[in-house]
């Protein structure tokens, strides 16, 4: 009786070898399924990152606009003129002390 009682492991391996194509295909399916999960996860992470970056961009844009306002409040022409004339005692050059350069 002992000869009919083959080792189960050998039996299974033999079986698997007989249906080698099916085994290969199911392994491929499993692999692609896992890969699918992996790529979905990657995609989601990238989307999240993109979303965060565009949020960051929006925030920077807002900051930029606020800085623009500050800049233009400070560099307003009449203010510069006032500071130049009153604080720095500057004046517009007269003809006597200006040099006219002709460009070709």
């Amino acid at each position: 009786m002992s000869h009919s009682r083959d080792n189960l492991l050998y039996l299974i391996l033999a079986d698997l070898r007989r249906n080698f194509a099916a085994v290969l295909l199911s392994a491929a399916i499993l692999l692609s399924a896992f890969y699918n999960i992996y790529t979905t996860h990657e995609t989601r992470e990238l989307i999240t990152e993109k979303e965060q970056l565009s949020q960051q961009k929006d925030n920077l844009m807002i900051e930029w606009r606020n800085l623009l306002i500050e800049e233009h409040t400070l560099d307003e022409h009449s203010r510069i003129r006032r500071i130049a004339v009153k604080k720095l005692s500057m004046s517009q050059p007269t003809n006597n002390n200006s040099v006219l350069v002709e460009l070709p």
Binding site: T94, N95, N96, V99, L100, V101, E102, P104
Partner: peptide, 23 residues
């Protein structure tokens, strides 16, 4: 006129120094 760099055209008023281009 000054801001747009328009060339003075009053020839009777020659008080400024003119650097002409060699052309």
């Amino acid at each position: 006129l000054l801001l747009e760099h328009v060339r003075p055209d009053d020839d009777t008023d020659q008080r400024y120094t003119l650097l002409e281009s060699n052309q």
